[in-house]
Computed example of a mutant assay.
Amino acid sequence: MVFKNKIKSSVIVIEEFGTSLGVSKNTLVIKKRGKIAKKLPLSHIEKIIIQAKGVSISSNLIYALQKRKISIEFVDYKYNPYAMIYGIELSYPKIAIKQLEIVNSEKRIEFAREFVKAKIVNQRNYLKIMSKYHKNLEENIIKIDKIKSKIKNANKIDELMGYEGSIANIYWNGISKILNEEDFKRITKGATDRINTALNYGYAILYNKVQKALIKAGLGINISFLHTFEKKPVLVFDFIEQFRCVAVDKAICFSLKKSDDIDVNNKGMLTREAKRRIVEEVNERLATFYKFNGKKYTLNAIIEFQAFRLRDAILNSIKYKSFIARY
């Protein structure tokens, strides 16, 4: 129970208008309407997420957080990130130059293949585990295996994305069977149903974690190997693929099958209880241990390790090995 409480307190989500955040003796002080609502030791906090307007943050708190490498992240009502406060680190222009060199070379496809391969293998393995309880998943697994075998020979990004898209359709059909929701279709933007909205919310939590890890590793998050270049942190879209299924899909499927707490209101937005449940479940997945490099590490630690592994692969022109969950 102590471990669970630590997980819950590691990510602080501020959702109420007019909340003020300050610091006193290495303790976060949260006030509502001028009165102290909660105090938490900074040592127990991983990050603070602001999902409300009219929130005030003291400069003393910002200073205390940056010394401990704790980020303040801002998200909209759909949990899409739009800003972050994080301590100033030394910039790594050398890495950005190397990233651009790779993007304009034949090595780009090697990095892209690794991200796609890990995503597909993790999806396939999850369906395989769930096939012990849902016998109708075998057809999906066979279809995925047929397409998966073609990935190693893909030499163009469009070809790779085509395989990834085909497998995604098969995978989400498998998820619909697990959830006993025959009409479920994956929607990434503008979703109002509880399954898609819950998944999008969970991915946004993971997105923040991944972006922070890449920034910490000094990578240029606007330089992508797999996705189209935009005025967005597209490297996050690449890197997150290897963790989506393990950190979010499993958490959301488990929660939806376990209880009715995850629901949307009449505007197609998650209820406060649903958000609380998803934050809790995803953070518990991030705190789960997996076999990695011959030992066991939390998924949180693995994400950071993989960010530095990606940096090393870029700087030293060595093969990048994506994360495949081993239980």
Rank of each mutant, 00 (worst) to 15 (best):
S224F: 11
Y201W: 14
L214S: 07
G162K: 00
I205F: 06
L214E: 03
S166Q: 12
L226Y: 06
N173A: 12
Y163G: 04
Y207V: 05
A213S: 15
G220A: 13
S176G: 14
I157M: 04
K209D: 04
I205E: 01
N155D: 01
I157E: 01
A154Q: 11
A217R: 14
I195Y: 02
A154W: 09
K185Q: 00
Y171K: 05
K156T: 08
G162W: 00
E159P: 00
N208L: 03
I178V: 13
Y203V: 03
I157A: 03
G190N: 09
D158A: 11
A198G: 14
K156V: 01
K189C: 00
V210S: 09
F225T: 12
A168D: 15
N200W: 05
T192H: 08
F184A: 14
E182G: 07
I221T: 05
S224Y: 11
K177S: 06
A204K: 05
A191K: 06
I187W: 01
N222C: 02
I167Q: 04
G162Y: 02
N200Y: 03
Y171H: 09
E181Y: 15
R186G: 07
T228R: 10
K189I: 02
T197V: 08
G190M: 04
Y201L: 15
I178D: 02
R194Y: 15
I170G: 11
N173Q: 12
E182M: 02
A204W: 00
I187C: 07
Y163T: 05
G190K: 08
T188H: 03
Q211V: 01
L226D: 05
V210D: 03
G162R: 02
N196S: 12
L199R: 15
G202V: 13
K209R: 13
N208R: 01
T192A: 05
I221H: 01
A217Y: 13
F184C: 14
G190D: 02
I215R: 09
A213G: 08
W172N: 14
A198T: 06
I157T: 11
T192C: 07
T228E: 14
W172A: 09
E182Y: 06
G165M: 14
E181K: 15
G174T: 13
L219N: 10
G220K: 06
N155E: 04
G165P: 08
L219C: 06
K209E: 02
M161H: 02
E181W: 14
L179I: 09
Y203W: 00
A168E: 15
F225G: 09
F229Y: 04
A154S: 12
G165Q: 13
S176T: 13
N196R: 12
I215L: 07
Q211P: 00
I151Q: 01
F184P: 13
I157F: 01
N169F: 03
